[in-house]
C-alpha cells in the first residue's frame, strides 16, 4: 500500500470516527434523561470520561489546539457533571498538558522565558479575576457566554492563517526594554533563526483579556495565545506555540487555585480527564505525520460549532 493511499485511508477513518463520535455524542445528550444518568454507576462515567478525554487528546493535537478548549464545551454537553467541576478539570487538563510538554521545548529555545513571563504575569492576574467572575455567575449565563466564546474560537480557527517566521523590521521600545528576542535552531533548514517582536503593549493588553476568558471558562488559551504571539507580535510560529504552553502553565495554575478553593476541583472527575487527555495527546503526536491534519482541523471546528450551539441552547434553558 502506497503512503498516499495509507494517508487517505487513515484520514478517512479519522473523519468517520469523528463524525460518529459527534453524531453519537449529540444523541447521547438528548437521549439520556437525568434519572438514567443517576442510575449509571460512577465508575462507568469515569471510564467514559477517560475514553472521551483520550479521544479529545488525539484530536486536539491533530487539530493544533490545546485539549482544554475542546474539553470544557464538549464534556459539559455530554456528561452529567456541573459546569463548575468541568471548568475546574479543564484548567487542570490545560495546565498538566503544558507542564508535560514544556521541558523539551525550553531546552530547544522554542519556549522562551523572557517572552512568556511578562505575558503570564498580566494573564495570571486576569485569569484569577476571570475565575472569580465565572464562578460567581449563574450557570446558564456562563453556558451562554461559553457558547458565544466557542463560536468565536471556531470562527478564529477558520479565518486564522499563521505565519511561519514573520518578517519584522524593527522591534518596539518595550520589547527592547524587556530584552525580548531570541534565536532557535531550525532543524528543517539546519540553521539558526533569530527573532524579535513588536506591538508589545497591545500584546500585553490582549494577554490580559485572554487570561480573563481562560479563567472564566476553565479553558486553555492556546487558541488565542498563538495568533497574538504570531500574527500580532511577529513571533515565529514554533516559538509562539511553545511559549503559549509556558504562559498557559502559569495562567492555568493561578486560576486553578480559585476553583480549588471554591470546591470546584473534584479528583474523581479531574484525574481521569487529565490522564485521558495526556495519553491521547501522546498518541495524537505519533499520528500527526500519518493523518490529513487539515481534515481533522475542519472536524474539530465542526465539533466546536456543535458544542457551542449546545452550550447556547443550554444557556437559554432549551
Amino acid at each position: 500500500m502506497s503512503s498516499a493511499t495509507r494517508k487517505i485511508l487513515v484520514s478517512c477513518a479519522a473523519t468517520s470516527g469523528a463524525l460518529a463520535f459527534l453524531f453519537i455524542g449529540t444523541n447521547i445528550v438528548y437521549a439520556i434523561p437525568p434519572h438514567v444518568a443517576e442510575q449509571t454507576a460512577w465508575w462507568v462515567w469515569m471510564i467514559l470520561l477517560f475514553v472521551f478525554s483520550f479521544i479529545l487528546g488525539i484530536f486536539s493535537v491533530l487539530a493544533g489546539v490545546g485539549g482544554g478548549v475542546l474539553f470544557v464545551p464538549i464534556v459539559s454537553g455530554f456528561f452529567p457533571f456541573h459546569l463548575d467541576f468541568i471548568r475546574g478539570a479543564g484548567l487542570l487538563v490545560a495546565l498538566s498538558g503544558a507542564l508535560s510538554a514544556g521541558a523539551p521545548l525550553m531546552r530547544k529555545g522554542l519556549a522562551d522565558l523572557k517572552l512568556g513571563l511578562p505575558m503570564a504575569l498580566v494573564g495570571s492576574i486576569s485569569s484569577i479575576a476571570g475565575a472569580l467572575a465565572g464562578l460567581a455567575m449563574p450557570a446558564n449565563v456562563v453556558q451562554l457566554l461559553l457558547g458565544l466564546a466557542i463560536m468565536g474560537i471556531a470562527a478564529l480557527m477558520m479565518k486564522a492563517r499563521a505565519y511561519g517566521t514573520p518578517d519584522l523590521k524593527e522591534p518596539d521600545a518595550l520589547s527592547k526594554m524587556l530584552q525580548i528576542s531570541g534565536i532557535y535552531y531550525e532543524e528543517s533548514t539546519k540553521s539558526d533563526v533569530s527573532w524579535q517582536i513588536h506591538r508589545t503593549p497591545l500584546g500585553l493588553f490582549l494577554f490580559m483579556i485572554i487570561g480573563f476568558i481562560g479563567g472564566m471558562f476553565g479553558m486553555g488559551a492556546g487558541w488565542a495565545n498563538v495568533p497574538v504571539f504570531n500574527m500580532l507580535m511577529g513571533v515565529p510560529l514554533k516559538v509562539a506555540v511553545a511559549t503559549s504552553g509556558l504562559v498557559l502553565s502559569i495562567n492555568g495554575a493561578a486560576a486553578a487555585w480559585v476553583y480549588i478553593f471554591k470546591g470546584a476541583v473534584v479528583p474523581l472527575i479531574a484525574v481521569p480527564a487529565i490522564g485521558g487527555i495526556m495519553l491521547g495527546s501522546k498518541i495524537g503526536a505519533k499520528l500527526l505525520t500519518k493523518v490529513n491534519t487539515r481534515s481533522v482541523r475542519m472536524i474539530v471546528i465542526i465539533m466546536l460549532v456543535v458544542a457551542g450551539l449546545r452550550s447556547l441552547l443550554k444557556g437559554f434553558g432549551i
Partner: peptide, 11 residues
C-alpha cells in the same frame, strides 16, 4: 455521595 451530587453547583 460525590457521584450522586456532581450535578450540583460546587458551592
Amino acid at each position: 455521595a460525590i457521584a450522586g451530587n456532581w450535578h450540583l453547583k460546587a458551592s
